[in-house]
Design a protein around this nucleic acid. Structure first.
Lengths: 201, 201, 201, 201
DNA sequence: CATGAATGAGAATTCATTCAT
DNA sequence: CATGAATGAATTCTCATTCAT
């Protein structure tokens, strides 16, 4: 007698994640140029055709990868925030958490960076649910409302902070040699940023 | 502090520049994906084969384009600096000059942004002559030495300032709608950045 | 002169017919190109793999579909023939019955037309049981033997009649606009054909 | 000193025809299924990519092939018509010319047949310039106006004549064995058709 | 030097078929 | 028997690069 599966499993979620992680790694190493579906599939140990079981097209896969990465980053960053600390401490925690996350998962940073400056990043994409942006905006809103940050639009603060942070990470990731002379002072950047956004009595 | 063109004058210089500008425009519109040599050549009004008279390969062309753009930007930025003004004024001038330049020549910003986050941007590339980086470093060195900026490595200051600036430009370029609500406060960003780097008495 | 269904009744006969009808519809709409098994299965509300329970391969399915359609057509045409009428009336009845059948079931005509001109239609296929051809041959044989048609090989008459008929239906089906000007005269075609085959005293 | 070509030759016409003839042959042998670009190119002794120098896409190639074949057929048929003969003789000449042409160039007949019943044959395609259809219509118009054919729309007559003819050719081409018994009478078909369309005093 | 037709390796995608559940 | 995820060969098409003119 045949046994019918009782577990409705529309798709194998782990295989989908395997494919996404494989694409992520290839994009980090070789850019969008260097991640043909054939390679993605090989690295994920699936057949090339199987990628199309999970994604309508390669573009769709890249877009889902963006959502995936942003969600993962938002999850990890928000988990580590301790709202009981004072805001200044939370800001430096955030800074350190992001830089460590990117150091641990350089593919996250590299992908987000490449995606953001690529034509994939249309306005339509940005208007979709953005858990990372939302969390950051809420975070800085708290700082403004509690009077610890300058009375600015939290989105503006996000832009400035993230810009500095991305710039810093990009430099340290890509150009270890170049910044060697400056490495000792890199930890002063968050202080500069904090000085820029904190409320000046 | 003027920077002279680095484009060698062998061959037909205007045709070479035509090709570079054509590539620049296509990369802005469609990313690295969307600039096949055939298109670049058509837009530059030359034959596809002729591109190989001026560049060894497509990669070589992209790399030369990077040099070209950085040189152009350095030239325009350095030209507009007035060393007779006080440093704070020069800082805000710089900020405005860069943002206007990118507004006038969005292809410059888009290309630099894409290039920087791409695998083209190897350490070897960065170690080559970088007139823009050099000029900025010299600029901030002056600010530090004259006691108007925090006593930090000028390279570090460059990183932070440029990061904020790129982030700002990227947002305003790509996402007009998204930042509409925040648009009125965008001009406050340079002040934040200045507050972050200025010497605090 | 009734023709019985040739579809064997092993397995679930309705599901087999569902699959055939689904393929028929897709071939009418999109040609042989546009009827992947996945679509056929979806339209028949079965799983793709299930098609292979009923047919050895896709080619086998197409060949069975040919048998199915020819059988259906033969059944409907033979049912409506009234041997008690005189032969001329029966000829015009036949003509009208075929044209109405094709108008009601355009997929029948479209499939037969595509199949006939395709490489599926090998000599081997033609030598198999052909209820439609047999019925027509018998019909025209009667006309010849009763002296109402020219004394020709009935197969030859079939060829000429069916050719005109298929040509007519193809034109009216595919090109409504084109024949608009000629539409009023289309009903004269059977008369021309009859004039061509009738015994000339 | 270099010699610039003085002959403006947008494309190599013979190579384009080579490709078309190659596709024609493959479609005759294997149908639309069996003519992948790779095979077409190989048989035409060009690289696969070169096909795209001459045609925008495979579909475009098929459509141009249709135009090519119809034009060739129209040319050959019209060349052999002798307007000085009486109309009945010209009709039998036409019939013989078409059947011999199709016997000499079976790929023409096979392609036209397959194309006509395929989804390529849209109304838009039919509304394009159709030299063969136009020539035939003009031919039969002459017959009607000179009182030698029934007073019908010449398009209608074309439909009937071509239908019989295609049907005949299809049978003789595909099924030599089947019609063996009938072969001796095949030459009587044009007489039947003529009897169907001629003016009956 | 300029041209652009020709090349062919490689990319995205499809789809008939299989097989573990 | 039914399912549909998985497969991978085959297909269409692109594009960097070459080379005869």
């Amino acid at each position: 007698m045949n046994v019918h599966s009782l577990i409705p499993m529309e798709q194998n979620p782990s295989k989908k994640v395997q494919i996404l992680e494989s694409a992520l790694e290839l994009i980090k190493e070789n850019g969008f140029h260097g991640c043909p579906i054939s390679q993605v599939a090989k690295q994920a140990s699936v057949a090339a055709g199987s990628v199309y079981t999970y994604f309508e097209s390669k573009d769709e896969m890249i877009l889902e990868l963006y959502t995936y990465v942003k969600t993962e980053v938002a999850k990890k960053i928000s988990e580590k925030d301790d709202p009981k600390k004072n805001f200044e401490a939370r800001f430096f925690d955030l800074w350190n958490n992001v830089t460590s996350l990117y150091r641990e998962k350089p593919a996250f940073q590299s992908f987000l960076d490449q995606f953001s400056s690529s034509p994939y990043n249309t306005e339509a994409v940005q208007l979709e649910c953005d858990p990372l942006g939302q969390w950051l905006e809420a975070f800085f809103k708290e700082g403004v409302e509690s009077g610890q940050l300058k009375a600015l639009n939290p989105k503006i603060i996000s832009i400035m902070v993230l810009g500095s942070l991305i710039s810093l990470v990009r430099f340290t990731t890509y150009f270890k040699a170049k910044t060697a002379s400056a490495a000792q002072d890199l930890h002063l950047i968050p202080q500069m940023v904090w000085d820029g956004i904190k409320f000046q009595s």
